[in-house]
Design a protein around this nucleic acid. Structure first.
Length: 584
RNA sequence: GCCAGCGUAGCUCAGGGGUAGAGCAACUGAUUCGUAAUCAGUAGGUCGGCGGUUCAAUUCCGCCCGCUGGCUCCA
């Protein structure tokens, strides 16, 4: 844990609140050992060592006790003790985890204690001066956690909480959490009939319903168009292959545990593909390549299968079968930097087209288990870094998070609860070209080895779609809306006119539906509104007589009377520009 | 995979050792209506699965499956 040198006032309150919780827990559940309790975004947690897990009712009790302790207005006092004293003190208390922490502290550093009444904790601080300063807090949920984040270590019981300056801020935060739940893609996926997962099929395997699939087609169409425009060629590869292919690539050695188990076909072992690269390499290898052909850019919406442990599956955001918007670029070494730069441009363009303007960029460096030479790693990492700097993109280094075959740039976007999910990636790979022994003929007439770039922009269509749903809370911009316009005739007498308008809109490429049910207009509006359809068109006597449309936009009570042409122009313009209207 | 919680009609949920209930949706009928819910009726469930306890289990217990929140993991 990196100590926060300059915590804000609120962070200090949160940390003191974590102490207050630890005090309450140790009072209510004697024998519980304390470990660490840091501040996190919007709150804090504390990990306890205790045989029994905390149950929801425990949290209520703890919270109640915390309120009493806070109200007691006990001063929080800092003191320093020697290392030996500290080890003895916590050792005598049976706090073995704390002793381990003290033993790990630099002997030259002072050891500080923060004490409130009878209760104290080893802590670097700072803290608020009195428990009374801790006013607005709530315990949220429990979890298990491994000591020092390692699953070989003992399991600890974690309690998460949140704390704010005032009750009002706390209320607003809890409200924000509630709102975020409403835009959960799993909830919206059901309500808007976009996708489902079936127990009979298996966890992490997605069924795209007509409306979801419609959006996917639009995503794919846009993606393909942009790729053809940028010098990519599209290829298609099978979903399974002989295991030998993965032996050559090194995947069986490094990632066997994450592959769907073997299938026996006529005595040969096959596996579902966990990635597309070896297939694209095979296509590359089918003929002799000249330096004049490079870079060769093979793109594919390639569906892959990966065994993800059951506990990590999450709606569309973490699944076992997904389609990557993958591409592999075979380059001369001198082309690497420029190609990375072009890919970064394309990533930013695609993300912005879908409305994502906030993202985090990471440069992931060499992991513990890797293949290839140190020089290769260094120059590849350098190429990525230079491209990022040239594009003036802010990034953080993620040490040791690279892929076994090379370093990479990752781009993450966030879901409704501000959890970040990796979408785009650019990976430099000088190892697979070696393993598959691919080459091209250079100017000098000799065989040379190309360098490969692996890249994805949306990452996986499933994950990207999940983020998209949450980003728009299901109210997709017009160009992506599965149903763009719904026609709402007021009575049966207007159905014929609705048919006529529907046909004209369809002919112009508008995705239109009719609500011909025998319901009142208010009811139809309500349903269209809940389905987040961008345009509702009310058709009654007035419209039929004047051959116009009563146009109502989603999230707007205002209605306009437009003729068909004016309306179509408005729709076409918004679709063409992929407009993201704030009124959406 | 680990810890905890949850699993009842298509959906949202109530109930509880004596064979199950609401609202919405669906279906039928009436109504033909101007911008967020018209009225009435009908139908719908092996109470996630398997096993145990019991005269009796959807309810209690065990195991399994699935989901949720975290942890670990994420080529």
């Amino acid at each position: 844990m990196i100590p926060n040198e300059n915590p804000s006032e609120l962070e200090t309150i949160r940390h003191s609140c974590a102490h207050l919780m630890a005090q309450a827990v140790q009072e209510l559940f004697p024998g519980t050992q304390v470990t660490i309790g840091p501040v996190i975004e919007d709150g804090f947690f504390y990990d306890f060592s205790r045989k029994e897990a905390f149950i929801p009712e425990d949290l209520e009790k703890i919270e109640k006790r915390m309120k009493e302790l806070a109200a007691a207005d006990t001063p929080i006092v800092r003191s320093e003790i020697s290392r030996e004293e500290a080890i003895k003190k916590f050792g005598d208390m049976g706090e073995t985890f704390k002793v381990e922490i003290i033993e790990g502290i630099d002997p030259n550093e002072p050891i500080s204690l923060y004490t409130q009444g009878e209760w104290g904790d080893l802590c670097g601080g700072p803290h608020v001066e009195s428990t009374k300063k801790i006013k607005a807090f709530k315990l949220l949920h429990t979890s298990s956690a491994y000591w020092r984040g390692d699953e070989r270590n003992p399991v600890l019981q974690r309690i998460y909480g949140t704390a704010w300056n005032t009750e009002k801020e706390l209320r607003l935060y809890l409200k924000r959490l509630e709102e975020a739940k409403k835009r959960d893609h799993r909830k919206l996926g059901k309500e808007l009939d976009l996708f489902s997962v079936s127990d009979d099929i298996g966890p992490g395997l997605i069924l795209w319903h007509p409306k979801g699939a419609r959006i996917r087609h639009l995503m794919e169409e846009f993606w393909k168009k942009e790729h053809f425009k940028h010098g990519y060629e599209m290829v298609i590869s099978p979903h399974a292959a002989k295991i030998d292919l993965w032996k050559t690539s090194g995947h069986t050695e490094f990632y066997k545990d994450n592959m769907f188990s073997n299938m026996d076909i006529e005595g040969r072992e096959y596996v579902m593909k966990p990635m597309n690269c070896p297939f694209h390499i095979q296509i590359y290898k089918t003929k002799l390549r000249s330096y004049r052909d490079l870079p060769v850019r093979f793109g594919e919406l390639g569906t892959v299968y990966r065994y993800e442990r059951s506990g990590v599956l999450h709606g569309l955001l973490r699944v076992r079968g997904f389609t990557q918007d993958d591409a592999h670029l075979f380059c001369r070494p001198s082309q690497i930097e420029e190609e990375i730069t072009k890919v970064l441009d394309l990533i930013v363009f695609i993300l912005q087209s879908f409305g994502f303007h906030e993202y985090k960029i990471y440069l992931s460096t060499r992991p513990e288990k890797y293949v290839g030479s140190d020089e290769g790693w260094e120059s590849a990492t350098k190429a990525l870094e230079t491209a990022l700097n040239n594009k003036k993109l802010d990034f953080e280094v993620d040490p040791g998070e690279g892929v076994f075959y090379g370093p990479k740039i990752d781009i993450k976007i966030k879901d409704s609860l501000n959890r970040y999910w990796q979408v785009s990636t650019v990976q430099v790979d000088f190892n697979l070209p070696e393993k598959f022994d691919i080459s091209y003929i250079e100017e000098d007439g000799q065989r040379h080895q190309p360098i490969m770039l692996h890249r994805a922009l949306m990452g996986s269509l499933e994950r990207f779609f999940g983020c998209l749903i949450e980003h728009y809370a299901g109210a997709f911009p017009l160009w992506l809306a599965p149903v763009q316009v719904i026609l709402l005739p007021i009575t049966d007498n207007h159905a014929v006119y609705a048919d006529k308008i529907a046909q004209q809109l369809e002919e112009s490429g508008v995705r239109v539906e009719k609500d011909l049910r025998n319901e009142k207009i208010g009811f139809k509006i309500r349903e269209a509104q809940l389905q987040k359809i961008p345009y509702m068109i009310v058709l009654g006597d007035k419209e039929v007589e004047s051959s116009t449309l009563g146009v109502r936009r989603r999230r707007s009570k205002e209605t306009r009377t437009l003729d068909l042409k004016t309306f179509l122009d408005e729709v076409n313009e918004a679709v063409k520009n992929r407009t993201i209207d704030s009124a959406d």
